[in-house]
Amino acid sequence: MEAVLFILFGAIAVCGAIMVVTRKSPMASALYLILTLFAVAALFVLRQAHFLAAVQVIVYAGAVVVLFVFVIMLINVPEDRLPVERATTTRVLGVLAAGIFILESAVLARRFWMQKGPAAEVGTVETVGRALFTDYLLAFEITSVLLLAAVIGAIALAKRKT
């Protein structure tokens, strides 16, 4: 059962990701991105990482992609005026890099193969919270300062008079 669900959601995630980069309309790309994010969240649930799955949907699908959609809507480029995509050097290099990345992840996956059977209770709210506020407290606090800096930076940029 778990293997079937894993293959199903894995396939949805990969197909969605391919659609994100190949669609011409930016809105379609954004919607496929949501699909991919949901499929990845489902994969987290399969590994008992419920907290991670919820946060994945809240942060990425619920906030980040909403901002993408917001920008797409604000700029609102008509379909016949979208830039024409050409096979430039950067694109060819990008495809090559993607190929190397896939090979690398295959090698890594073989080395760190996940254990079969039910995963440990590592992904519950309690365990994640405890780990964040004990073992990884410094990293957690530094991240929050980093985010604060980003917020202040964004406000400073937006308020600058040109």
Partner: peptide, 11 residues
């Protein structure tokens, strides 16, 4: 995750 699910859905 209880309420976090609610947030995810309402998002």
């Amino acid at each position: 995750v209880g309420i976090l699910y609610l947030f995810a859905v309402s998002g």
